[in-house]
Amino acid sequence: MVGAQICSGVLAVLAAFWAVDVRADGPGLFKSPSLSSSSSRKGTKAPPRKPSLDERFLFQPAKYPAGPWDQKPACCEEVSFEAPDGASLNAWMVRADEPAAVVLYCHGNSGNLSLYGRWMERVREKHRLTLMVFDYRGYGKSEGEATVDGVLADAAAARAKLATLAGCPEEKLLLWGRSLGGAVAIQLAADKPPAGLILESTFSSFREVADLHQPALSWLVPRDRLNSVEAIGGVKCPLLQTHGTADRLIPLAMGEKLHEAAGSSTKRLLLKEGGDHNNGTPETFPAELDAFCAALSAGPRSLQGAAGKRGAVAP
């Protein structure tokens, strides 16, 4: 009984420094394990481990039927696929005619993909993107309980599924992640180079978030858990990054540290003056997104001018 009370108390305190990261209208447009482990091979499925204490507050899933599932646009097709350990996973996909890019989107730490349907429809129409948003294990209709290892395996499986559905190599996909999803996208990019990487309000490392908000308890988070600043050094693909200057959950300094560490020679950081964690995308982003996708299609030379540039602060 006492042990349970202590555990509950620790969880309550830890939750204070990881605020719910979700918006009702979707995202702001409007050292880790290998992702290619032998457990993915047929006949070698290992049982999933239980979430650790820090993972239980890191992941804040909303299980089906929670969420606006009835608002799924007609253009969204439902996709089912399996994680390496056999967990059934769920995704939504929209397809554009002659797409400017094929995108895998990794969402934040809370909610589920039902929040993204209308945004997906807008992105398809306004930016000609073929896009898939998937739910990590334990979120929405996806089975299981979320752990860092499991979520990274889910993301690798989602990447493979999207490549198959879109009929293109995984290396031609554009990875896009927000907050926690940015950390997932970085690990994917470090494992296998994508065509490009987009990050919104993403932290430098999970441990640094804990150090900032709850230093007395941050020792519970292993230093190599979602260490994005270490992983991104090996990511050489073009990078487009956004951050709000008034983000108190993931301060701008973390975004700047991540940007500085990125191994890409063609990277751009766009800032929104006064933007917080859920409103850190500048008004210039739609045009920047179109230009980024066009440059990726045109080839490396068209991106050379963007090397090292820092975007102007948007009002």
Score class of each variant (00 low, 15 high):
Ser38Trp: 11
Ser39His: 08
Ser39Cys: 08
Arg41Gly: 06
Lys42Gly: 06
Lys42Ile: 11
Lys42Gln: 14
Gly43Ser: 09
Thr44Val: 12
Thr44Ser: 13
Lys45Arg: 15
Lys45Ile: 09
Ala46Val: 12
Pro48Gln: 01
Pro48His: 01
Arg49Met: 10
Lys50Asp: 13
Lys50Leu: 13
Pro51Leu: 09
Pro51Gly: 05
Pro51Trp: 08
Ser52Pro: 00
Leu53Pro: 03
Leu53Glu: 08
Asp54Pro: 05
Asp54Glu: 15
Glu55Cys: 06
Arg56Pro: 01
Phe57Ser: 04
Leu58Ile: 14
Gln60Arg: 11
Pro61Glu: 05
Ala62Tyr: 09
Lys63Met: 05
Lys63Gly: 00
Lys63Phe: 05
Lys63Ala: 15
Lys63Leu: 10
Tyr64Leu: 02
Tyr64Ala: 12
Tyr64Ile: 01
Pro65Arg: 02
Pro65Glu: 04
Pro65Asp: 04
Pro65Gln: 02
Pro65Leu: 02
Gly67Phe: 06
Gly67Trp: 00
Trp69Tyr: 09
Asp70Tyr: 10
Gln71Ile: 00
Lys72Val: 07
Pro73Gln: 09
Pro73Ile: 12
Ala74Gly: 04
Ala74Asp: 14
Cys75Thr: 13
Cys76Tyr: 02
Cys76Gln: 02
Cys76Leu: 05
Ser80Asn: 11
Ser80Val: 10
Phe81Met: 08
Phe81Cys: 06
Phe81Val: 06
Phe81Thr: 07
Glu82Cys: 11
Ala83Thr: 07
Ala83Ile: 02
Asp85Phe: 06
Asp85Pro: 04
Gly86Leu: 08
Gly86Phe: 07
Ala87Cys: 09
Ala87Gln: 13
Ser88Asn: 10
Ser88Val: 09
Leu89Val: 07
Asn90Asp: 15
Trp92Phe: 07
Met93Phe: 10
Met93Thr: 00
Val94Lys: 03
Val94Ile: 11
Arg95Lys: 14
Asp97Cys: 11
Asp97Gly: 12
Glu98Leu: 11
Pro99Arg: 12
Pro99Cys: 12
Ala100Thr: 14
Ala101Gln: 12
Ala101Glu: 12
Val102Ala: 08
Val103Met: 13
Val103Gln: 09
Leu104Asn: 04
Leu104Glu: 03
Leu104Lys: 02
His107Thr: 10
Gly108Met: 11
Asn109Leu: 08
Asn109Met: 06
Asn109Pro: 11
Ser110Gln: 03
Asn112Phe: 01
Asn112Gln: 04
Leu115Gly: 00
Leu115His: 13
Leu115Ile: 07
Tyr116Phe: 15
Tyr116Gln: 07
Tyr116Lys: 03
Tyr116Asp: 03
Tyr116Ser: 03
Gly117Ala: 06
Arg118Pro: 08
Trp119Met: 14
Met120Phe: 06
Met120His: 04
Met120Asp: 05
Glu121Cys: 07
Glu121Phe: 00
Arg122Ser: 14
Arg122Thr: 14
Arg122Asn: 12
Arg122Phe: 09
